[in-house]
């Protein structure tokens, strides 16, 4: 069952609307994700909410692009920049937002429309499995 790592990784790019959290992404987003972990402490959450820019200044290795995306709560952009949803959950949880609320912002749908879609069976995988094969 030995798999070729290059082929293994290449297949991930064929999935529409999906960024698999590979080590390449993990390295890019290392400091964004470590910053998010700091919000597991109540004292840090308070300092972050009181002055987000000042709090981010304590993280010199986060790029300006990543900082802007954090301030804008642009989760889709943050995934492009190496963020991971389970880490970013600390950011939206600090805002008092649920996974459903945060995740819906990446879909171009309103929260209500997204919730209703989920209640009526969710998003069909039809046509969303493979870019190349279109099934």
């Amino acid at each position: 069952m030995k798999q070729n790592i290059h082929e293994y990784l290449a297949e991930f790019d064929d999935i529409p609307g999906t960024r698999v959290y590979t080590t390449a992404r993990a390295r890019k987003g290392y400091w964004v994700n470590q910053f998010a972990m700091s919000l597991m402490k109540d004292e840090n959450r308070k300092r972050w909410l009181a002055d987000e820019k000042a709090y981010l200044d304590e993280w010199p290795k986060i790029t300006q692009e990543q900082k802007d995306a954090l301030l804008a709560r642009d989760y889709d952009k943050l995934l492009d920049l190496g963020g991971n949803i389970y880490f970013l959950a600390k950011v939206f949880s600090t805002d008092g937002k649920s996974y459903l609320q945060a995740v819906s912002t990446m879909t171009g749908m309103s929260v209500d429309d997204y919730r209703n879609m989920m209640l009526s069976g969710g998003r069909s995988p039809e046509g969303l499995r493979s870019k190349k094969k279109g099934y």
């Binding site: 529409p16 609307g17 949803i85 995740v103 819906s104 990446m106 998003r123 995988p125």
Partner: peptide, 16 residues
């Protein structure tokens, strides 16, 4: 089945 990211978020595949 679930996907928590991007435009494919909300994917559910009951049959699978």
């Amino acid at each position: 089945s679930h996907q928590l990211q991007g435009t494919r978020a909300g994917l559910i595949n009951a049959e699978w």
